Simulated assay, not measured.
Amino acid sequence: MKFLFLLFTFAAVSTSALADAGHGQPQKNEPEPSRTIDIQAGSMWFDSDELQIEPGTTVRFRIENVAMIPHEFAIGSSRMQQMHREMMQQGGDHHGAGDNGNMMSGHHDGMMDHGESQSAAVTIAPGETETLIWTAPDQGDVIEYACFLPGHYEAGMKGTVTLNSNS
């Protein structure tokens, strides 16, 4: 019986690991990033509080957490960011946090599941670097990026993206 339990557990873990292989990399139906932006996340700051990106551009963000605490990098319209912020303030389990409080699941399954394809988020462990692929919208809303872990946004971990055809 123990053998079957161990076999089932191994199969479940292996399947999850294989399903996430290449996560953060463009899938076959996603465009290849034409630009890479490196961002550092420190003790309650991002090293840039404004980015300029050409509309429709697919960007590879490499976010390095140089702090001793976890951070997140979430990007999307101001409306989507507000929804994500409210969910995080209510103790949402969007990060994969379980009963043990471990919030270091890595990615938020790439896209936030709020019906908007141009929102994405990733959680970055202390001392780690994560990659996030995102495509800027062709037009429209104000785009923001932020860390919504409790207290981080309020401390200033946020920035804006200006959609600019001369980026």
Rank of each mutant, 00 (worst) to 15 (best):
H71F: 11
M80D: 11
M104Y: 10
G91Y: 06
M68N: 08
E86R: 06
R79S: 02
R85D: 10
D93P: 13
G76F: 01
Q81D: 08
Q90Y: 09
I69P: 02
Q89D: 04
N100H: 00
H84F: 01
D99R: 13
Q81W: 03
M103Y: 00
M88L: 03
A97C: 11
A74P: 14
D93Y: 04
H94D: 04
Q89G: 08
D93L: 01
G91Q: 10
G76E: 09
S77N: 04
G76W: 10
G92C: 15
E72F: 06
A74F: 00
H84G: 02
R79E: 10
S78W: 09
G76D: 14
G98I: 06
A74V: 07
H71T: 15
I75W: 08
H94L: 08
G101V: 04
S78R: 09
M80Y: 05
M83P: 06
V66L: 09
R79M: 00
M103K: 12
E72M: 13
A97F: 11
G96A: 15
Q81V: 02
I69Y: 01
H84E: 08
M88Y: 10
I75F: 03
G98W: 07
S78N: 08
G92E: 02
A97H: 12
H84Q: 08
R85Q: 09
I69E: 12
N100L: 05
M68E: 15
G98R: 07
Q82I: 00
F73I: 05
V66C: 09
Q81E: 06
M103E: 12
G92W: 03
N65H: 02
Q82F: 08
G91T: 05
M83E: 03
M83C: 12
M103T: 15
E72K: 14
M68Y: 03
M80V: 01
A74G: 12
H71E: 09
M80W: 10
D93H: 01
G101L: 00
E86G: 14
M87W: 02
S77L: 12
G76K: 05
H95L: 13
M88H: 04
R85E: 14
S78D: 02
H71P: 02
R79V: 04
M103I: 01
I75E: 06
G76L: 05
H95P: 13
G101N: 11
M87D: 04
R79D: 09
A97D: 06
Q90M: 14
P70V: 02
Q90K: 10
I75S: 04
V66N: 14
S77Q: 05
A74N: 13
A97N: 15
M68A: 13
N102L: 08
M87V: 04
M103H: 09
R79C: 11
E86Q: 14
M103G: 10
N65E: 08
G101F: 11
I69G: 01
G101R: 07
G98A: 11
M68H: 14
G91C: 07
R85C: 01
A67W: 00
G101H: 09
G98T: 10
